[in-house]
Amino acid sequence: MKRSPLTLRVAVLTYVGLLIGLPLFFVFQQTFSRGFGVLWQALNDQQMDAAMILSAKVALVAVPLNVLFGVGTSLWIVRSPSRITAVLDRLIDIPLAISPIIVGLVLMLAYGQNGWFGQTFASWGWNIMFSYPGIVIASIFVSLPLVSRQVIPLLREVGTHAEETAATLGAGPWRIFFTITLRSITWATAYGVTLTLARVIGEYGAVLVVSGNIALVTQTLTLNIGANFDNFNNYQGFVGSAVLALSSIIILSMLSIARNRERKRHEYLA
């Protein structure tokens, strides 16, 4: 492989270093600056722990739902295209294109106590906004297309011949789905899952609006970090940031392992 020019390498490394490396280093440096005793105490902060648990609970519901929705939508859009799916195909990109704060406000308008559906739900005793369901809905909304955007191009590429062949060999629709279709989109789906997961636990704007940001109750980890910095509780904020950064790094590593395995498969088998 050809070596890139020195100036290019220096420029890229400086850019990445200043934007990503230095802040990341700073977060961890601050976190460990007061020794492990203080860090341990900070890690056991009641509010932060509650926030971490809430974030995990949200991801546990939002991610699987979006995987089901994403794979289902992809199959529908690719396998039986129609005017409806053409509209759907454009519609599911909207969450990525609009600002999360607007997502939050729109959800508030729809599901808030005085909102269109909110009133009905409230009359049944369900509160969507300022509670767990609202956070889940907002998280689903902002990460909606991340799975299908990975799966759709791959489904188009693999085509229908393998599935049709399986049918001629006697396989029924469910067997075809699990043995042929799903296996061909496994890695794309895994990639979509990691993107979704990273987006869900990192979301701030939309969740800020719909959750009400009540400590110990509706405060996710990102909101908790924001609150700590707002209250000049910087050290606790850095610890929360380090936890979030670390989980992001873990997710990204999972992602790169998934991609490598997929690429290896393709190179090895090509």
Partner: peptide, 21 residues
């Protein structure tokens, strides 16, 4: 009779291999 009940061997131009198998 649906495809799977016809007991017909079919080969596509691209051979439609099951790449994961």
């Amino acid at each position: 009779v649906p495809v799977r009940g016809r007991n017909i061997g079919f080969c596509f131009q691209d051979y439609a291999p099951f790449n994961q198998l």
